[in-house]
Design a protein around this nucleic acid. Structure first.
Length: 472
RNA sequence: CGGGGUGUGGCGCAAUGGUUAGCGCGCUGGCAUGGGGUGCCAGAGGUUGCGGGUUCGAGUCCCGCCACCCCGACCA
């Protein structure tokens, strides 16, 4: 809908990602292999997010087991019901049937909170905030690389707090970290907000999210941060003795950010030449392409090597001296989405002014090497902002404030996108809208101000405009 | 699980029931080229998804199975 050249976004995506050496399919359905170039991207995101999690949220990293005894998963009813359709279960191991089945974790609330119940005894033990980087397995009906893998990588953070306010503070700190990663590092705009009752995490009081518009008009849930209230602490018996000697249950939260974010990067920024990777997390921030002429090849090589050594200290750089034509390499690096390129040939040999190229604008520019190195931080900041602006523009241009249901249906049929509409917050209206238009509530934006309105579906009184879209 | 589709070198495809299953991309070796997917030469690479059946003869026809893909319900 939005970009002519990406009419078939799914084909474009699968084709480009495989050509760009991001991933390969795994042998089991719904699994993928992260190839070095794809995995490096995740490692770089991890680097920044991990720092945020430790410094801004105050969490410590841990690692819990992959297997969860079935009895633990059963302790919280809503959680169990939410996840049981998509869990993988080990029933046979070591040559015989297991006495108790083992769940391959779809998320780790239960196994972590079982430990919390033993670790937390006193108000002095609070808050307890931990985080783990791990894989989880969810048997999705229809897998799609990065956006819905059977197995995916993420971090999941878990906080146990003295009271609800303290827990909520962490809920919003986590959400804020995710928004900062998406906006300041990945250049991806979205709507931060609260999930509806039916869309929230199984077992949570409230779920907060960052909803991203994909150029085909559908919405991607970019992360989640849950206010768990005391829904888990009560069944798991996570209680502490307070100063006044009374026993109290902790207030909890959990929050996660996954490799789905890579899918968002590819889909939101990519163009007809291929990927456009945000420079702060791109595996290579710059690639040097030597352009040989058959006469001065050794001098060009030497010159490239000097520049390479100099850039290497501050920039993730790759020197591409493969035996391919320059045109081939240009296209290859455009496809792989490397943010900057430096072209070194006869013209540059005895010259201080070098030829650079930036992927987002597809423009060449001339600059002295030292100046480039000195202004690199600013350049990647500006590059990221440019991506964010584009993404924001796309999102705003495809956000429609609608007041009658026919218009709503028409937009969903013709172009999709985000639809902002009053909703009475009755589940039945939400369900009917989904059945009739495929759109579900994505979130109630945090910036929402309550006012008088009428539900887009039933016409009854409504106080807030929700964001609707077709979910990815 | 429902609806549709496809299985042939690594990938994309071709092959009226009839010799030794072809082509493009990619890969290997070589020569030239080199500022936006360059050209030529020489190579390597196959139990046609699996199992039956029909036939003088099956990639091709029939039956069964399996796998994967697309569309829906589920979903970070």
């Amino acid at each position: 809908m939005i970009e002519e050249k990406r009419k078939n976004l799914s084909d474009w995506y699968l084709d480009v990602l495989q050509k760009a050496d991001i991933f390969d399919y795994g042998p089991a359905r719904g699994t993928i292999i992260f190839k070095p170039y794809g995995y490096a991207l995740w490692e770089n995101i991890q680097f920044y997010l991990d720092k945020f999690i430790k410094e801004k949220i105050g969490a410590q990293n841990v690692y819990f087991p992959l297997f969860i005894p079935e009895s633990l998963l059963k302790k919280e009813k809503e959680h169990l019901e939410g996840f049981s359709p998509e869990v993988a279960v080990v029933t046979y191991a070591g040559g015989s049937e297991l006495e108790e089945k083992l769940i391959v974790r779809p998320t780790s609330e239960t196994i972590i909170y079982d430990a919390f119940s033993r670790w937390i005894k006193s108000y002095r033990d609070l808050p307890l905030i931990i985080n783990q980087w791990c894989n989880v397995v969810r048997w999705e009906k229809r897998p799609f690389p990065f956006l819905r893998n059977t197995e995916f990588l993420w971090q999941e953070g878990h906080g146990a707090h003295y009271d609800h306010d303290d827990s909520l503070k962490t809920v919003f700190e986590a959400l804020d970290c995710y928004i900062r990663i998406y906006q300041d590092y990945l250049g991806i705009f979205g709507y931060a907000g609260q999930k509806s009752e039916s869309e929230k995490f199984a077992g949570a009081l409230k779920t907060f999210t960052y909803e991203i518009l994909i150029p085909d008009g559908r919405a991607l849930q970019g992360c989640t941060s849950h206010d768990l209230g005391q829904n888990f602490s009560i069944p798991f018996g996570i209680k502490f003795q307070d100063k006044d000697m009374s026993l109290k249950y902790v207030w909890q939260n959990s929050w996660g950010f996954s490799t789905r974010s890579l899918g968002a990067i590819f889909l939101v920024h990519g163009d007809e030449l291929g990927l456009v990777l945000p420079p702060k997390v791109a595996p290579y921030q710059l690639v040097i392409v030597p352009i040989y002429d058959g006469k001065n090849d050794s001098q060009i090589d030497e010159f490239c090597n000097i520049i390479y050594r100099k850039l290497k200290e501050k920039i993730r750089v790759f020197l591409d001296n493969r035996e391919e034509t320059p045109g081939y390499k240009f296209n290859d690096w455009d496809l792989k989405g490397v943010p900057f390129r430096l072209e070194i040939g006869q013209q540059e040999l005895n010259n201080k002014i070098l030829t650079f190229y930036r992927r987002d604008k597809r423009e060449r520019f001339k600059m002295e090497l030292d100046k480039f190195v000195d202004s690199f931080e600013n350049l990647i900041e500006e590059f990221t902002q440019n991506l964010l602006e584009r993404s924001k523009k796309l999102t705003l241009e495809n956000t429609y404030e609608v007041e009658n249901y026919n218009e709503f249906k028409k937009i969903m049929e013709e172009k999709r996108g985000f639809l902002k509409a009053f909703w009475c917050e009755d589940k039945n209206c939400e369900l009917k809208i989904k059945e009739e238009t495929k759109a579900t509530t994505r979130c109630l934006p945090l910036t929402n101000e309550e006012k008088d309105g009428k539900c887009i579906y039933c016409g009854r009184k409504a106080k807030s405009q929700w964001i609707f879209a077709q979910a990815y």
